[in-house]
């Protein structure tokens, strides 16, 4: 009410919020992240264009993981089919499709819902295969420990410059279909250069799901990441414990700001992957 003269007129008030529009998604992502860490599951968000080779990389990872004794699991997002989930299932990765309909990306809530009837707790590594798209998925934190962007050698050397948001969000770029390089006019140095202009700590592994090239480096990266966030080691298989957390979706997880692992103090050390500060990284955290 107007307090000057008490006339009963309404008042215009400016409400300052300065709040992220994706704050709701970020809360849901924190919730997922807590679940993953507590269950000692390494969650990865796999992004890339349609046809970049996301599913093929996972199929090839299944072989490498079997040798390590890792149990993998995946949810695979697709607009219309469950083809990818079926391919992964066939490759020995327990998988579930998330059919997004018209939605061009996954959000944290969709991932959370997909977990409810999937035995993700029985996995060591849980892959979230995002919708094939180099734009929209980049800005949604899902609760993953790291973002892996799959880029194939046939896509063009300047892709990182054209999609800086996606590659800036990447913790690792997997350059796929490298067995095709001899047949193409692609210069890998140009891809490296483009990445260095959008990623402050560019990290790229050249792989071929077909020949198995680079799979050992990719597996080593996963292992390093897992150890770095404290999910490796002898007790890494402590699954199946009692979990009394109610899924009310409305937890007050506090508004702690995750600072990105790569920007905490400006003191340079090449931690290839892991955050030494105890929380998982990846996603769109605030750059404090």
């Amino acid at each position: 009410m107007c307090t000057t003269c008490g006339c009963g007129d309404t008042e215009l008030v400016p409400v300052e919020l300065h709040e992220k529009i994706l704050a709701g998604n970020d809360r849901a992502a924190r919730h997922n992240r807590e679940h993953f860490l507590e269950a000692r599951v390494l969650a990865l968000n796999l992004m890339g264009s349609p046809g970049a080779g996301k599913t093929a990389v996972l199929e090839a990872t299944a072989k490498a993981a079997a040798a390590k004794g890792w149990r993998l699991g995946a949810v695979s997002a697709d607009l219309a089919t469950d083809n990818d989930a079926r391919r992964l299932q066939k490759a020995g990765i327990p998988s579930k499709a998330i059919t997004t309909g018209q939605a061009c990306h996954l959000d944290a809530e969709l991932v959370h819902r997909s977990l409810h009837d999937f035995p993700w707790r029985d996995t060591d590594m849980f892959f979230i295969e995002n919708v094939g798209n180099l734009v929209c998925p980049a800005i949604y934190d899902l609760g993953q420990a790291a973002n892996v962007v799959v880029l194939s050698v046939t896509e063009g050397e300047d892709k990182p410059l054209k999609y800086p948001v996606m590659f800036n969000a990447a913790d690792l770029v997997l350059l796929t279909k490298c067995d095709l390089v001899p047949h193409l006019d692609v210069e890998l140095a140009k891809i490296h250069d483009a990445l260095a202009r959008v990623m402050p700590r560019p990290r790229m592994i050249e792989v071929s799901a077909r020949t198995g090239q680079g799979m050992d480096a990719w597996v080593a990266w996963l292992e390093e990441l897992r150890d770095g966030i404290g999910l490796g080691g002898a007790d890494a298989h402590a699954h199946g414990h009692e979990h009394s957390h109610a899924h009310s979706h409305e937890h007050a997880h506090g508004d702690e700001r995750h600072s990105h692992a790569h920007s905490h103090d400006g003191h340079e050390h090449e931690h290839g992957s892991a955050d030494h500060h105890g929380h998982a990284r990846g996603g769109k955290h605030d750059h404090d």
Binding site: M1, T10, E11, L12, V13, P14, V15, E16, L17, H18, E19, K20, I21, L22, I139, V165, N168, D193, A196, R197, V198, M199, P200, R201, H262, S263, G266, E268, K284, D286, H287
Partner: peptide, 30 residues
Amino acid sequence: ILRCPACDTPGKLDDGSDALTLDGIEMEVP
């Protein structure tokens, strides 16, 4: 290239560069 031209430290994105923020709402209250 995202490295400091002076000391070669990997760069950091400045505040606001990647944010989508609801700054304020003007509303009419009784």
